[in-house]
Each structure stands twice: as C-alpha cells, then as structure tokens.
Design a protein around this nucleic acid. Structure first.
Lengths: 117, 117
DNA sequence: GTAGTTGGTATCCGATCGGAAACCACGCCG
DNA sequence: CGGCGTGGTTTCCGATCGGATACCAACTAC
C-alpha cells in the first residue's frame, strides 16, 4: 500500500509524526487491528506504531478499543474528530499532486553546496 | 505577531520544520528582509532562520534576492509555488480553528501514565 | 507441553532538531 | 578610527526521532 520510497516525503506538509498520516488513511475505511496496520505500513516497527497510535489517541483522533472476548484483541478506529481530518488532508494531497512536478524540479535544481554571496 | 506559546503547536498539521509555516505567512503580504523576519518570529535564532529559509528555497517555495546596491541587502519573497501553498494552509488553519476546543479537550483528558490492559 | 500469534515493552544506538553563544566579513556612519 | 547594523557561520549541547533487536504475558492450536 505505502511505498517504502514514499513520494509523500517530498511534500512539505505533514500530519503528526512520520506515520500518523498513513495511519489515518489506513483507518479511513473502517477499524483495523494492530497487526493489520503493520501490513500496509511496510517495515514499521512495533515500537514506532505504538508510539504513533498513542499520540493519535492522546490528540483524540483515534480510539483504542480492547475486546475481551476470548483472545486478546485490540482495534483502532477514527473518532469523529479524526474523521474530520480527512477533508483537509485531501486538500493537502491535491495540492501536492498538483505541484508534484514543480517540487521535483526545485529539488533537482538545488545545488546544495553553492550560495552566491 | 506569533505568540511564544503558539497555539498552532497544538495542531497535528505542520508545514516543513518548526518555523516554515510562520515564515510563509510572514511573506504573504510582500517581500521581507532577514532581520525583518526575526521580529515576528520572536526569539528565533539566526541559525534556525537561515536553516528554514534555505530549506524553503531548496523546495522552491521562496526566493532569495541579494541586492548589491549600496549596502548588503537580502530579501525573501514567495515564489508562485510558495504562494500556491497559502490556500491549502488556510484550509488547515480553518480546520484547526474549528476543532480547537476538541483538540484542547482531548489533550486535557489524556492521563499520560495510564493504559488499561 | 510446546510452539505460534497478538499486542505490545525495554534497551541501545546513531541521526537529526533546535537553542545558546561566540564569532565574522562587509559596508556605513560619525 | 571605532563602533554599529546586516546577514549570516561555527561550535557545542541536550532533547527528540526513529530503527533494530530482544524480550514478554496471555491466549490458542496442535
């Protein structure tokens, strides 16, 4: 789902920490379990995922639900507040897509070790 | 202009590094000089400002103009690309303002050292 | 009973962030 | 001549980020 060479790193806009934005998008279409989230977020470590989830929960964007039926089972879901972020996030994505080429060009054109005095 | 206890730290959305978003807004109404930028960005160090400006320049969002008339004089200006960010940024600000109370409540309600098993 | 899954924690590490403070080249002003 | 303003750079430092690795308790399946 998310490319390890994720192009979204190019965008200057970010939501929370490195993974938060992707997590929110993963939850867009319904609740997900801890280990389900690890699949699309290729290579995320348990520690990193836990940390991001806790931060999102603290900010009231997602909800953590522990089911006690039978085995251990934890689900994560967007809160209404979290869901309300999808709209501004879409705006940002649209901007990034629209100016994709310009962003790439700017990066390429920058000669990192020069600065005219 | 920018409160040292800036409420925008509460928003999970960020543009570039710590200062980039504010710098862009400072340039919204016209070109600014290095030392002019330091005033609204209360307490920013020269190093931090330089770093943010270089990053924004590298990403093609701002333009650095050195005037050689008389004394040393450097001006910073938004590029069209940079200016195009104002719109999505406004969207984000609107979201943050709209959900301001909820964000505050969520932070307050979070008891950092508890986690039910 | 023992191996596997789930949902994590704990520890270590190198890289980066961001502030404080010192320094500096250049030009101007008195 | 000396000091001041401009636009930085350099060094140091503590805090944070994010990855790798090891470990773990509870439950289930074989």
């Amino acid at each position: 789902m998310f490319d390890p060479v994720c192009p979204s790193d190019l965008s200057p806009i970010r939501v929370g920490d490195k993974w938060a934005g992707m997590i929110i998008r993963c939850l867009e279409h319904g609740t997900r379990r801890f280990s389900e989230l690890r699949i699309p977020l290729r290579g995320i470590t348990a520690k990193a995922l836990t940390k991001s989830l806790r931060a999102l929960e603290r900010d009231g964007l997602i909800q953590r639900i522990t089911h006690l039926d039978r085995a251990r089972r934890v689900e994560y879901d967007l809160t209404p507040l979290g869901r309300s972020m999808l709209e501004p996030m879409a705006t940002m994505c649209a901007w990034a897509e629209e100016h994709w080429e310009e962003l790439l060009d700017a990066r390429e054109a920058s000669t990192p070790l020069q600065r005219a005095r």
